[in-house]
Design a protein around this nucleic acid. Structure first.
Lengths: 223, 223
DNA sequence: TTTAATTTTTAGATTTGTCTAAATTATTAT
DNA sequence: ATAATAATTTAGACAAATCTAAAAATTAAA
């Protein structure tokens, strides 16, 4: 079955919002899709008719297995195209999202699968997000501490094992958050501190303790 | 300026039809776009308002320089994507058109230009059609006779220098026409005859005379 | 537990691109 | 030159996706 780009965007947005909250509200969707709540209600009715989601008036919405399948395929396409753009066409990781928003709606399934093979089956996109496989299965990305990364590797912040407020305060101050891309520039044996380049911009140094508790996703091989 | 996929398709179709006839009729357009004449009239009015074409009721239509520019950009994108699909993703040349019909509407200009560089600036697509450059200039493809092709090369029929009816009859019988893809399998010195594989299917033999008068476009390097 | 605030839905319109059927203009053939 | 035929346009309608303004339902607050 084929769905319009607009419907695909709704399914994708609902999928993402469901990661936070099982039931997605009309307002949250409108916000995510940059549209009006009334438009969301209209569309939800149509998607329900197509059995892509469960929707009860005033009670929010949830994807059906079929809806989830469609959403995951779109996400798969989006992330594979992002890989292509960065790896093959030398785009910066920060400029690919917008283009992939268009490319993800190209329908050919064969195209996506060939693209995946051409890229040598990457497991994550340039932002560190996992790429669903051909069956929609999302790979569990390896989480490792910054301290375990080799010099010159690139990774994306994925989690923090020490969630103390002092840790969070430090990260906030250094402008490091979930999804932040970082590159290991230098590791100092003397105290285990690590010099990082954040978002291809500022260079910061973090202590041994921070490096051990800042988790990153599987390094994304640029070359 | 950005135009809808539908408008882009109209401009592209008009451009192609203008190659045959300077003034394009409503019916011809409807036929080309697989739609109804009434719909064409509706759209022509809108495109005229946007100054993309000259249109006078009942008198057919012609692209303005701006319309032509847009059309050539779409054609450029279409053909570059076809190259990508065949050359990088191992698609067959006969299955890429449909997919490129979608890809050609991806808006990013930077994407097209990067893609072109990635493909090493091809001059023609897998069907032998020339690829407009970044300024919309269409390269004049070299025409050569089949007799001049090396064994194992691939080319696309581009023209016939002997347009006699007997020649046309022979070509028709052998199922060779403009755009037909052929591969040189063997050349016989004794009489100048050439063995060809047509459309990756039947193998046919043509005489010295036919080989010298059947023109093909620049060979398309698959690898 | 009423009232107030917020969220969500409905009703009715709008835009884009399409359609059918009827009317109009152009072309062709007698 | 006029009648028949073909091509084109108009008028009015429809589906998809969106919107605004108003109504209804839910949630939070007094």
């Amino acid at each position: 079955m084929q769905y319009s780009a607009s419907k695909e965007n709704y399914l994708k947005a609902i999928f993402h919002l469901q990661q936070e909250q099982d039931n997605v509200s009309t307002n949250a969707l409108a916000e995510a899709l940059q549209t009006k709540p009334a438009s969301v209600t209209d569309m939800l009715k149509k998607l329900k008719l197509q059995k892509l989601l469960q929707y009860e008036k005033y009670y929010g919405v949830k994807l059906t297995p079929e809806g989830k399948k469609v959403a995951l395929l779109i996400i798969r396409k989006h992330r594979l195209w992002e890989c292509f753009l960065v790896e093959k066409l030398q785009f910066g990781w920060e400029e690919v999202h917008e283009i992939a928003e268009e490319l993800e709606h190209i329908s050919s399934k064969k195209l996506v699968d060939r693209l995946e093979a051409f890229l040598d089956f990457p497991k994550s996109d340039p932002h560190g997000d996992p790429i669903p496989d051909i069956n929609g299965k999302v790979p569990q990305l390896q989480q490792l501490a910054v301290s375990a990364l080799p010099v010159n590797s690139t990774a994306i912040v994925n989690g923090i094992s020490d969630q103390s407020s002092s840790m969070l305060e430090l990260l906030k101050h250094k402008n490091i958050q979930l999804g932040t891309r970082l590159e290991v520039k230098k590791k100092f044996d003397v105290d285990g501190s690590v010099e990082l380049r954040i978002r291809n911009q500022q260079t910061v140094t973090i202590s041994d303790h921070v490096a051990k508790n800042l988790l990153v996703s599987y390094e994304y091989k640029i070359k």
